[in-house]
Design a protein around this nucleic acid. Structure first.
Lengths: 146, 146
DNA sequence: GCTTCTCCCATTGACGCCCATATGGTCCCA
DNA sequence: TGGGACCATATGGGCGTCAATGGGAGAAGC
């Protein structure tokens, strides 16, 4: 199963490190990814993380839109200008920098959320709220699986 | 019989495991399913469980709409972030994680409910209530055999 | 110099795989 | 038809492995 699924919450240690869930690390090493690209999500207060190929995907999406639209401009600003590279330590941990903390509100714990072709870093409470809202919205629209 | 039918209640052991009813396991192995996809149901306080094709269906549905829309993002939050792959141990048991407990209210016993192409995990009392309500609602709408 | 970031090792707790037991049902045969 | 052997399922527990976490020491930068 070669995609990012499920969610898990891990604690940040005294040095500001947090373990990436082993299921996610397995997906990364499957794809031969050694360096991760992180940027601020467009719709949620979360940091999106993936391999370099994640850029390709967003660039394709931008190309599909009007290149001078507000949406395309914002995307480029966030993806190209606002992204940072991070790499994991030998135990599979990453440093939670201020770049991550400020945008997400993360302080002591990080919720890792699988999003298929990438994953995200959330403040635990914020994720719980967003998920509840998503479920509520879905109920109101009457959409059902299948 | 390659559909999930009927219901059964099993006990969770001291390690947090519960046996999947053998009738359900038979349906799974018939379909060659080794990994199960579980997600929090959109309507009931239950966990829905099925093969990976369940997730494929969701992903097709998402791919059909604008992948950067709020609706698609919310759906991904639920089916990717709120979904888990689990596998059974050699005896056909699964771990009842907090992911399952928190959403369903399950504590000591699990009711497995067949739903045709998938099955669900319920807190026994909650299932009894939901079933009673379904019966009642049907009566009020005028009982019809389909 | 001191701080900050790596890498390395230790601990602990959870999870996986294995084997053992009980309970209830079915089939066979006298 | 009744008894008993056999079987399958559900359940309980031991034990090894691995992931998550904590802390120390060396290297690099300010």
């Amino acid at each position: 199963m070669n995609r990012f699924l499920s969610h898990a919450t891990n604690r940040i240690d005294a040095k500001g490190r947090v373990s990436v869930p082993s299921a996610f690390r397995a997906v990364l090493s499957d794809g031969g990814v050694r360096e991760l690209y992180c940027f601020q999500d467009f719709v949620f207060p979360a940091i999106s993380v993936g391999g370099p190929e994640l850029l390709d995907r967003f660039e394709k999406q931008m190309a599909a839109e009007d290149p001078f639209s507000d949406a395309a401009n914002q995307m480029s600003l966030l993806v190209h200008g606002g992204g940072v590279f991070v790499k994991l330590d030998p135990e599979g941990r990453l440093m939670v920098t201020d770049f991550i903390r400020d945008f997400t509100g993360i302080s002591t714990d990080v919720t890792f959320v699988g999003r298929g072709d990438h994953f995200q870093l959330w403040e635990p409470q914020a994720f719980a709220r967003a998920q509840a809202e998503a479920r509520e919205g879905r109920k109101q629209r009457g959409l059902r699986p299948e």
